[in-house]
Simulated scan of single mutants.
Amino acid sequence: MTSTVDASFEVLPFTRTRRHIREDGDRIFIGVGPGNSHFSAGRIGSLAGWAVIRFAQVDFVYADLHADRMFAAFGYTRERAEKRAAKEIKAVRRRILKGVEESGHPHAEIRVRELSEFQSNPVHQLPHRRVLHFLETDDEFRKGCEKMAWRFGTRTSAASPAG
């Protein structure tokens, strides 16, 4: 079942479990990656407004891990990749905080969290292990991930990694 949130987004649960999560309305995690300009502060504010109406707890989670490796894979030197990653992580956090603030909803209803906060949580470790397993054992999955990362990289990278 697809539902339109507003003119900007569409919700499409891919599995029965995801449909149940959506229907239960207990909690939603909304992931935002560094360098992803699709998630402007305005879009995040709209999404936050939609989410707090439908879920008891809303968590915006931004990737603060391994962004430097991503930029290094796009051709940046190690030093430049680390600087670019730090800059992008700060920028994504600022955009999320601004969007949440502009949504007009109390911060008690919406949390902004780093992905690294979940590293020690066993519930969140299982999906991570599964992804690593499929990256090693499923060529189609791995190629799909690589293609997605490459597409992201071509939109994120400057004309020249040094620039």
Rank of each mutant, 00 (worst) to 15 (best):
Asp68His: 11
Ser40Arg: 09
Gly99Gln: 05
Ala72Gln: 11
Phe74Val: 00
Val112Gln: 07
Ile44Pro: 02
Asp68Trp: 02
Gly99Leu: 03
Phe118Asp: 03
Gln57Tyr: 01
Ala41Ser: 15
Ser160Glu: 14
Gly99Lys: 05
Ser46Phe: 03
Ser103Lys: 08
Arg111Lys: 15
Arg129Leu: 11
Arg113Ser: 12
Val112Asn: 07
Arg111Pro: 01
Leu97Phe: 09
Arg93Lys: 13
Tyr62Gln: 00
Glu114Ile: 05
Phe152Ile: 12
Phe60Leu: 00
Glu140Phe: 07
Asp68Glu: 12
His124Thr: 11
Cys145Thr: 13
Phe134Tyr: 13
Glu102Thr: 03
Gln119Thr: 07
Gly42Asp: 03
Val58Tyr: 00
Ser46Leu: 11
Ile44Asn: 01
Ala158Asn: 11
Gly75Ile: 07
His66Asp: 14
Ala158Val: 08
Arg151Lys: 14
Tyr76Cys: 12
Phe74Arg: 12
Lys143Ala: 11
Arg93Phe: 11
Arg78Val: 12
Ala108Met: 01
Val58Ala: 00
Ala108Gly: 03
Phe141Thr: 03
Phe60Ser: 00
Ala158His: 13
Pro122Lys: 12
Met148Asp: 10
Glu101Leu: 11
Gly104Asp: 02
Glu114Arg: 15
Gly104Ile: 02
Thr137Ala: 07
Glu136Met: 09
Ser120Phe: 08
Ala91Asn: 10
